[in-house]
């Protein structure tokens, strides 16, 4: 862990899709074991920023990145960085829950298995621990053989969280994890985020400002590829320094 309390620091991070600039000079520090929310109107670059942190943008053709993303003080865009190890350390939850068309058990065992764990009782332990951490154990413990796709939307998303936890990440990136869920399922996810920050550093992209206010400790406001303001969440929502932030959080645009 980093001594100054920052798990991830970006320095002058810029990113473009071909000729189109999507992020401009983002410098921000994400604190260890806190929840940082990224807010802003559609197309402002918050998801792109999130995906830059574990290099998921590498999968898209024609993406150019400049600047630095330091995870535990190491620039992840350096040539000698092992992307696979980075993604294991910096896990990700997606907007649309995406369980594999496999059983609940195999969904969670997927990560440990590719990392070389094959002993049955070790896997059993990981599956149970992950499902408990994701608050799904009580609902599914009797049919772990059931397909992950047979679960409800909210359960599927918690399954994906459990799956991400199974590889022991240190950071969890969440890309609008509750945007496709009903209020009850959303509440469960938010509760979960609250519990998870004890052990993990969490970065969450959200469209829902109440959600950002409820779950996060720090909030970054993005607008057309720029970081407009970054501060403690309560300051962003009660006394923002920038006019644009104020307009957005009070619902004047966005």
């Amino acid at each position: 862990m980093n001594q100054n309390g920052y798990k991830i620091t970006t320095r002058n991070l810029s990113l473009s899709y071909g000729p189109k600039l999507a992020l401009k000079d983002i410098s921000v520090g994400i604190r260890t074991n806190y929840v940082t929310a990224l807010i802003g109107p559609s197309g402002c670059g918050k998801s792109t920023f999130l995906r830059a942190l574990n290099r998921m943008n590498d999968l898209i053709d024609g993406v150019q990145t400049s600047g630095e993303v330091l995870v535990d003080d190491i620039d992840v865009y350096r040539n000698d960085v092992d992307v696979v190890a980075l993604r294991k350390k910096v896990g990700m939850i997606f907007q649309r829950s995406n369980p594999f068309p496999k059983s609940i058990y195999d969904n969670i065992a997927y990560g440990p298995r590719i990392n070389g764990i094959h002993e049955k009782n070790k896997l059993d332990q990981i599956v149970e621990r992950s499902l408990k951490q994701a608050a799904l154990w009580d609902e599914v413990k009797d049919d772990l053989k059931k397909s992950g796709l047979a679960l409800s939307g909210g359960q599927q998303q918690r399954l994906c969280i459990a799956r991400a936890l199974a590889v022991d990440p240190e950071v969890i990136l969440m890309d609008e994890p509750a945007s496709a869920l009903d209020p009850l399922a959303t509440a469960k996810i938010e509760e979960l985020i609250f519990e998870l920050k004890e052990k993990y550093t969490i970065v969450i992209v959200t469209h829902n400002m109440q959600q950002a206010a409820r779950v996060s400790d720090y909030t970054a406001f993005f607008y057309i590829g720029k970081l407009i303001e970054f501060d403690e969440t309560k300051n962003i929502f009660t006394s923002p320094k920038e006019k644009q932030t104020e307009d957005y959080v009070t619902g004047r645009f966005g």
Partner: peptide, 15 residues
Amino acid sequence: VPRELREASLALGAT
């Protein structure tokens, strides 16, 4: 094969 499934696997640290 949906892109989401590939991303899920890669995000778990699969090659």
